[in-house]
Design a protein around this nucleic acid. Structure first.
Lengths: 271, 271
DNA sequence: AAGTGGTCTAGACCACCAG
DNA sequence: TGGTGGTCTAGACCACTTA
């Protein structure tokens, strides 16, 4: 009923897999979290039902209370459950889970939706970085960057224009990429470039001449813009991208709470 | 140099304040987090510098390592620092802090920017909830809702149209509200309605006739839309709002990482 | 090989909520 | 008043990075 409903010792430990995603990470608390997530989204605790007490869960899974709390913190951050002192946790909603790579990679995202991702590399140039690019990618004056322009499609129809600026050590890899590679993000990962953190800014802009030509819309037509700066595990910027979507093709969702708020609202786009 | 750089015992404990915001929460780890945040944003550790080890921080603040880790988890969620096994944490960027209420309340937000918030209640009606509203607010068939339409201004100029649907127990409070109240969010809080969790969805829509008239734009002109469902500490929905901003007036920012991702991307707006 | 963060445990006390 | 989650401690072992 409740996923496994028994101790996790019975779960095989031999699954290696990718360190990300997958319902069974190596850490104990991740497996507890995965099991509880499964139970919650399946409706085992009802629409707005109450979860068992931390102590009860600890006993059920054969782990300490601290580990249970670590697992529950994951679910709370995802907006799956509430938590307040004095009462058991309450189911908040059926969460929209989405792995990190699924969010950064257009290809992953499209496939996860069952759609066929497509795209075309329109251009790739290497040139000196301007001031803004140097600041975003933390580069020295005089440093060069690689800039790509891609048109992305879903099931054949144009959806988004993506302009990405790469620092040199990443750019050389992108430049060597065969032109028919579907997911450059995947390719970069295989070459040791990891994406772990990202800052996103979302607003609306008018299509310029280039956007209009590629997307097949009028010049000045509104586009949903997402600017994104991604860093690797060492905190080093590896990508600065600007994606422009046709209206009606995409929406972004965020959950936040009084204890965990990664969302903020800004006046005018400072650009 | 580093905020206090000494044990926190010297910090007065008498500050009560609002449980939210404020750099000094009651919990020990919150004070450590606040002190570290201060030090980081001040640049005490440099642009991409390394933080002291957990053990060193524990000793400096006179707390256990567990408490230090709790504090650092806050900063990591905010996108202020990275963290990986084997190396000290690295400063990621100067975070855009924004309290939860500042994000939910147009009035709070405007004042925090130094702008003068204004607004006008265009209409308030009470009527049976439709199917979508019942689902969002988790209401029984036949239940009624209160619907408000507000025009929000910054320094006199129209910026946003806000349509909010309230469940009965909140709606009655809104209906009793004097028409000249600036912040209804504040008013609701004083009456025991607390906002603790929110789900946001951001996309682009075309202005309808009503939007156009209020915002002074053409019908069909693009608007940045934010739909938001807010719940109270018990997990009970208290508000379902749809805000429509004129382009160029606002942008939303999110930080996420491989360990904590509250952001997701959806195909088409399911509405 | 040494240092560092990630994970897990066991136990304690407190603040808060509900019956 | 009893149960619950929030906070804090002390110690342990492991996985990983760096040199």
């Amino acid at each position: 009923m409740t996923g496994s409903a028994t101790r996790l010792d019975e779960t095989p430990l031999d699954e290696q897999e990718v360190p990300e995603a997958g319902t069974a990470g190596g850490a104990l608390y991740r497996r507890v979290a995965a099991d509880l997530r499964e139970a919650i989204t399946t409706g085992a605790y009802g629409e707005a039902g109450r979860l068992p007490a931390e102590g009860a869960l600890a006993e059920r899974y054969g782990v300490s209370r601290g580990t249970v709390r670590q697992a529950l913190a994951v679910l709370r951050a995802d907006g799956l459950v509430t938590s307040r002192r004095g009462t058991r946790r309450v189911v908040l909603g059926n969460a929209r889970v989405q792995s990190f790579s699924e969010l950064l990679s257009f290809t992953h995202w499209a496939r996860a939706m069952g759609e066929e991702p497509g795209g075309r590399l329109e251009s790739l140039v290497r040139r000196p970085a301007d001031a803004a690019e140097r600041e975003q990618l933390r580069l020295e004056p005089g440093a060069e960057v690689y800039v790509t322009l891609r048109l992305r499609t879903l099931s054949g129809s144009a959806v988004m224009v993506e302009r990405t600026v790469y620092p040199p050590h990443v750019g050389v890899l992108v430049a060597q990429l065969p032109p028919d590679v579907v997911s450059h993000t995947e390719h970069l990962r295989e070459h040791g470039i990891l994406f772990t953190d990202a800052d996103h800014t979302i607003d609306v802009v008018a299509a310029n001449a280039e956007d209009a030509k590629l997307l097949g819309c009028r010049r000045g037509a509104p586009l949903l813009r997402e600017r994104r700066r991604t860093t690797d595990p060492t905190g080093c910027p590896v990508e600065w991208s600007q994606d422009r979507y046709l209206p009606g093709t995409v929406a972004f969702s965020v959950h936040n709470s009084m204890v965990t708020s990664a969302l903020s609202r800004h006046a005018r786009a400072d650009d």
